[in-house]
Amino acid sequence: MTTAPRAEKPTIFIAEDEEGTAILLKFLLARGGYTVVHAADGQQAQTMIDQMPPPALVLLDIMLPYLNGLQLLAHIRQKAEWQHVPIIMLTADSNERDIQQALAAGANDYMVKPFNPRELTARLQRFLTVPS
């Protein structure tokens, strides 16, 4: 499911296959004043990344079908215009190795699921100016 981006709002790209988490993220981000673009699997995410302009921030789930979050991360960092987009990884558990690998490969931060909505907002604020 994709929400059409609007020019005046910063766009956040989410790659998340868990429906409940995706709905929640979309709601919280839309409420926070962002435009949300969502891909439900790794392959869809890759296609969208290749077609869309760089967003203000990316939320990438590590465990995704077809292409995982780490592969998408590598793909993003190879694209010149996406290289400086902040990326926050989402992981279902605190698997240190995945997190270390993601941070070493260019992720800016990570968040463990289930997450605290306030923590999400705080982490986003580190990278973005919250729209009024």
Binding site: E18, G20, T21, L24, K113, P114, F115, N116, P117, R118, E119
Partner: peptide
């Protein structure tokens, strides 16, 4: 319950 599984903390 599905929403509870996605969040933690005071939420």
């Amino acid at each position: 319950n599905s929403m509870q599984e996605s969040i933690k903390g005071e939420a």
